Structure formats: C-alpha cells, structure tokens
Computed example of a mutant assay.
Amino acid sequence: MITTANIFAHELIGLDAKIIESTNKTLAGLVGTIIFETKNTLAMRSGNATKIIPKSAAKKIKIVTENGACFISGSSMIARPEDRISRL
C-alpha cells in the first residue's frame, strides 16, 4: 500500500500527478498519469500527448495515491527507481 511515508520505495508508474511548481513555466499545472521513469526524467501522459519532465525542473509534484495525495520535490526523486529504495 502506497502512503506518503513510503512513496519513494514504490513504483510511480500508473499514478496520477500534477506539476504544482516548476522552473519551466510551461510545465507548471501539467496534469497526467506517470507512464515511465528514468534516473532524471518522468514521462507523463496528459490527454493524447506525452510530456517528458526533468525531475530537477519540477520543484513540487502532487502525486495522488489510493490513500490521498502527497507533495514531493522532483529533485528528491533523482535516482534510478531501483536505487531510491537503497537510499531510504
């Protein structure tokens, strides 16, 4: 079960997300579903378009889980998904 306390130890693919703050003004307010993740980027499907978001550009991301929403910094997610677990 994904909670705000263990969000970094789980897979983000398939979760709904919204970019609240970004250094790139065109990304702020983007809403979609996370479809892919690399070390430095998130790919989000918004409507029919897929946007690649640099994690370092996303200052605040709202991720919706089944238990509510959590707000995280994109720079705190910079790592390969499998390596995030070992950092905890």
Rank of each mutant, 00 (worst) to 15 (best):
I85W: 09
H10P: 03
L27C: 02
I35G: 08
N24C: 02
F36E: 11
T50Q: 15
N6K: 08
C70E: 07
N6M: 09
D16P: 10
I53Y: 08
T33I: 06
N67M: 08
E21C: 06
I53K: 05
T4Y: 04
T3H: 14
T33G: 01
N24Y: 01
T65E: 10
H10D: 10
F36H: 12
F36L: 08
V64K: 10
I72Q: 11
S56E: 14
A58F: 01
R87L: 05
N40V: 08
R87P: 00
I63N: 06
F36D: 13
K60H: 04
A5C: 12
T4L: 02
I19V: 15
E82D: 03
L12T: 09
A79K: 08
S46V: 11
A57C: 12
I2P: 12
R45V: 09
T26R: 01
P54F: 05
G32V: 02
V31A: 00
T38F: 11
T3Q: 05
E37H: 03
A28T: 02
D83F: 13
I2K: 14
K25P: 11
L15K: 15
K18A: 04
K55V: 01
T33L: 08
H10C: 11
A58D: 03
H10M: 06
A17F: 06
N48E: 14
D16F: 03
I85F: 05
V31M: 00
G14T: 07
A5G: 01
N6T: 07
D16C: 07
M77Y: 04
G29T: 00
T23A: 01
K18G: 04
T38Q: 10
R84E: 00
T23M: 13
D83S: 05
I34D: 07
L27K: 00
A49M: 03
F71G: 06
E66R: 05
I7N: 12
L88S: 06
I53E: 10
C70S: 12
